[in-house]
Amino acid sequence: MSVDLSASAGRARMSPRRRARVARGVQYVVLLAVLGLLLATADWETVGQTIFNPTSAAQMLDRVPNAFLNTVTYTLAAFAVGLSLGTVLALMRLSSVAPYRWIATAYVEFFRGIPALLVVIAVGYAVPIAFGVAFTSIVAVAAIALGAVAAAYISETVRAGIEAVPRGQVEAARSLGMSHTRTMVQVVLPQAFRTVMPPLTNEVLLLTKDTSLLFVLGQTREQFELTKVGRDALSTASGGLTGLFVIGAAYLLITIPLGILARRLERRTGGRP
């Protein structure tokens, strides 16, 4: 028996093309319905007063730039430590010396497993007691505590990047007489970092937001980062939740340009062979 596959024979059922069109139509209808429902049910007067309150936003605005800078500073300090320590840990993880591998593995498992908040508290309070040192700057605590946590994640990312570099690249470098170390520095790591640029950008973004954990250290006004300023604004009654939205916008002001920068960097460093 032959099968009739002509379009007319299929009329009884809908053709795949028409079915897809109907499905798309349904999706648009659902989207519009949800938006309409939100617009219709929200109490716009109250929203204007408590969520997008211009006077309340203006009140806190003078404190935002400093907090913005602090957040950026804490992030950069933590990332500098995280990236260097993370790279060292990644190399240790791939070392031919077994104890290095064990140490790196233990480190990663430990710092990946405990909340960053605990580490911040430990570095902020326990370490000074234990070692009799006093951290005068929050930047130092941020760098050590958040950097230590970030290093655990970054090391795994970098390790994956190193392992993704084709074997032939190493063989080519070694066949030219380059030593193991030189090959690592000049051929493997640059390519590994290019590969892991997207996940590394994620790490920076996560770190940016993790700087909010530094509130537990009890900062002076000059040391406030964005979230602290937002929380303070929350408690100064009038504006309601407006402060949170201002702060949210400030975070996006850091993260979105960073994302664009990372994409550009990725493109500039060229493609694979």
Binding site: V187, G270, P273
Partner: peptide
């Protein structure tokens, strides 16, 4: 065989 030029 695979050239193995340094791609970066």
């Amino acid at each position: 065989q695979q050239f193995n030029l340094f791609s970066h």
